[in-house]
Nucleic acid binder design. Structure first.
Length: 137
DNA sequence: GCCAACGTTGGC
DNA sequence: GCCAACGTTGGC
């Protein structure tokens, strides 16, 4: 079981929309590092849903329901997508400021590489953020 | 709205 | 294959 972080601007695609759609293909990634991360995802892996720009906080938990496949919106065929399902909301969203202020989380991919739209989360980081967010394991 | 960081593109 | 220029992202 691996853990991931999906980043989205709520203006483009928000957690509320994800919940309403339930399952949604994560298209539009045009970055090799992010695409590589998606290739490493397995069905059943879990991820955080993070709102960039507006809110800057982790608001929900999603599950990978379909593994890496070509992204139909990519004309070049270089990039792919996965499909994710909304699992549950984070009762108490964990903000970027809190993450930066937490020593154990200050080294997260989210902090170090702020521009990466899909990044890995270590198991210890996952557990701690769940705890901070009031998510029952 | 500004600015820094970083990935991508294109010329050589 | 290298490197400079450019565009985009995202935090503040």
């Amino acid at each position: 079981m691996k853990y991931w972080l999906f980043k989205s601007e709520p203006d483009a695609w928000s957690w509320d929309q994800q919940v309403a759609q339930k399952i949604e293909p994560w298209t539009g990634v045009r970055n090799y590092a992010a695409a590589l991360n998606m290739k490493n995802m397995k069905k059943g892996d879990l991820g955080f849903f993070y709102h960039s720009n507006i809110g800057k906080e982790i608001v929900g938990i999603v599950e990978v329901v379909k593994e890496y496949a070509p992204d139909p919106t990519d004309e070049t065929g270089k990039f792919g997508m996965v499909e994710i399902k909304a699992v549950k909301a984070v009762p108490k969203p964990v903000t970027l400021a809190e993450i930066k202020a937490t020593t154990a989380l200050a080294d997260m991919a989210l902090v170090r590489q702020s521009r990466l739209s899909v990044g890995p989360v270590r198991p210890a980081e996952w557990a701690l953020i769940c705890k901070m967010g009031g998510v029952k394991a």
